[in-house]
Design a protein around this nucleic acid. Structure first.
Length: 479
RNA sequence: GGCCUCAUGGUCAAGCGGUUAAGACGUCGCCCUCUCACGGCGAAAACCGGGGUUCGAGUCCCCGUGGGGCUACCA
């Protein structure tokens, strides 16, 4: 059996979108699952669309996501170069060869004539005008330097079929396919042509790409057939949508890989999530590492219908990754976000992280979750009221002084000891635990909700700040 | 317009002729609990419509409707 070779062939025109990344991911997963190779090729034949820095983004994104290619522009390989703009001579040679084989022909029609072929709606296909030029006429024009393109010669009758691995049999009548341009007048190939030549020359066995190529695949096959080359297996992927009507794209939103990483989504979760968009594993387990995805990937699990990118679910997955992450790893990843908080550097980092770990799904939530530590100030005494805890300002007036005295000398000043002490205080004074705990927590933070209980907050704040705030709260209550 | 293609809860999806139509996210409720969160338990929620085929259709066929794509000297 031939070794499986897949490729990811992006055009360096900007950001890596989630859809692009998924196409790359599936190509990678399939190749690895089959023990094959995955290669990266840059399709930059349209100089007008070239965007500075886009190539680097492609390298960086793949690397960051853990998608490693076996051959590519920056690492080389036996089928290079892997950049189409550096392969112009190859395409020209093959285009001329295809002309000789009857699969293509020279066309000298100018734009004006081409325009005249279209109807009021701008539709109308080429009429094969130049196909009927004699060999002599072609030679003359070529010699005279008349600008030309090379067009594919699509049969006027019949149809082309192929078996797509996800969509099944796809058939298109040749009469619905135009004699597309293979080699532009600037000498560079169009996507269709360069793609076929490169995929063949690079030994690609499985073409994995978006479903937008579903109906143009028969014309690729025509070329493979004309050259006498073996056709690859096609695997078309449904689009990833922003909503029911729009495809995910930079223009519609900002769901590029980098944007998500910047927002603090855990990158493994992003990769995991997009693998699940359009593909479902045999088992019901959804959280999977790249390695596990490689092992479990299968073409039969690929879905045919478009899927909508659901950020809430990505959020959840990201949170799962955080919760399962070793503390040191979480610390490493959280630190840059921690640094954005006012509380950064003023509290014990380890304690902060511990509190954050189960309360954060994406890293960018970190600052907002702990900023409150530095936002202590006068607050409404109605906060002391809690029906379930049977607590209110009057209770607080009783509790706070006792708590302050108790905590002033408590050793060690640490969560469970503090908790035990406060509960003990409640018992001694015939109060409910909640009355003490609630009052203290409110006094310490001035907030109805905090990421942790009274004892945890006290530990975090430290003895000095705890006593200080207890004192301030008592003063506010008129004590 | 022509052609290709898709259609199960709000979202991702399982299902591949006979099921009480999985599971996950989200939502809601309950439990746990020093508030929040975590965790546990539970609930509501779906086969686009119409014709066939069949003893039997979410599953097969046709039509319709709706969505997406292609129809460039873009990829």
């Amino acid at each position: 059996m031939k070794k499986v070779r897949t490729r990811f062939a992006p055009s360096p025109t900007g950001y890596m979108h989630i859809g692009n990344l998924r196409t790359a991911l599936y190509g990678y997963l399939f190749a690895k699952k089959e023990g094959g190779e995955f290669i990266l090729r840059l399709e930059d034949t349209d100089s007008k669309r070239f965007v500075e820095g886009a190539v680097q983004i492609i390298y960086d994104t793949l690397k960051d996501a853990g998608i490693v290619y076996d051959e590519g522009p920056d690492i080389g390989g036996p089928c290079g170069p892997y950049v189409q703009s550096e392969r112009a001579a190859i395409y020209k040679e093959y285009a001329e060869k295809l002309v000789k084989l009857g699969g293509a022909y020279y066309c000298f029609c100018d734009r004006e004539r081409l325009e005249s072929l279209k109807d009021e709606n701008g539709v109308g296909r080429y009429d094969k005008h130049c196909l009927h030029l004699t060999g002599e006429e072609v030679r003359e024009k070529l010699a005279a330097g008349v600008p030309y393109v090379i067009r594919q010669n699509v049969p006027e009758e019949g149809s082309g079929s192929y078996e797509d691995m996800v969509y099944g049999t796809v058939t298109v009548d040749f009469k619905d396919i135009e004699d597309g341009i293979l080699l532009k007048s600037d000498g560079l190939p169009t996507y269709n042509f360069a793609n076929v030549i490169d995929d063949h020359l690079m030994g690609i066995t499985h073409v994995i790409r978006g479903s937008e190529y579903l109906s143009s695949t028969p014309k690729y096959n025509l070329m493979y057939d004309a050259f006498g080359w073996e056709r690859p297996v096609y695997i078309h992927l449904p689009p990833i949508m922003k909503n029911a009507h729009e495809k995910l794209s930079k223009r519609n939103g900002d769901a590029s890989y980098q944007d998500l990483v910047d927002k603090g989504y855990i990158k493994e979760a992003i990769v995991n999530y997009i693998a699940l968009l359009g593909w479902s594993p045999k088992s019901n387990r959804e959280k999977m590492t790249l390695k596990e995805l490689e092992e479990n990937f299968s073409l039969s699990g690929i879905n045919k219908s478009p899927s909508i990118f659901d950020e809430p679910k990505l959020r959840w997955l990201s949170g799962e990754y955080i919760k399962d992450m070793p503390d040191e790893e979480f610390a490493k990843r959280a630190r840059p976000f921690l640094a954005r908080s006012k509380a950064y550097g003023k509290y014990d980092e380890e304690k902060l992280l511990k509190i954050l770990k189960t309360r954060v799904e994406i890293l960018s939530e970190i600052p907002e979750k702990i900023d409150f530590l530095e936002e202590y100030g006068p607050f409404d005494e109605a906060l002391y009221f809690n029906k379930k805890m049977k607590s209110d300002a009057e209770v607080a007036k009783k509790v706070l002084p006792l708590a302050r005295d108790l905590l002033a000398s408590l050793e060690p000043f640490e969560n469970s000891a503090i908790y035990q002490a406060l509960v003990g205080l409640a018992a001694e004074n015939g109060m409910k635990n909640g009355q003490v705990l609630w009052s203290v927590r409110i006094a310490l933070t001035g907030r109805e909700n905090t990421p942790g209980g009274a004892s945890e907050m006290a530990e975090l704040l430290g003895r000095e700040r705890t006593l200080e705030r207890l004192g301030a709260a008592m003063t506010a209550l008129g004590l």
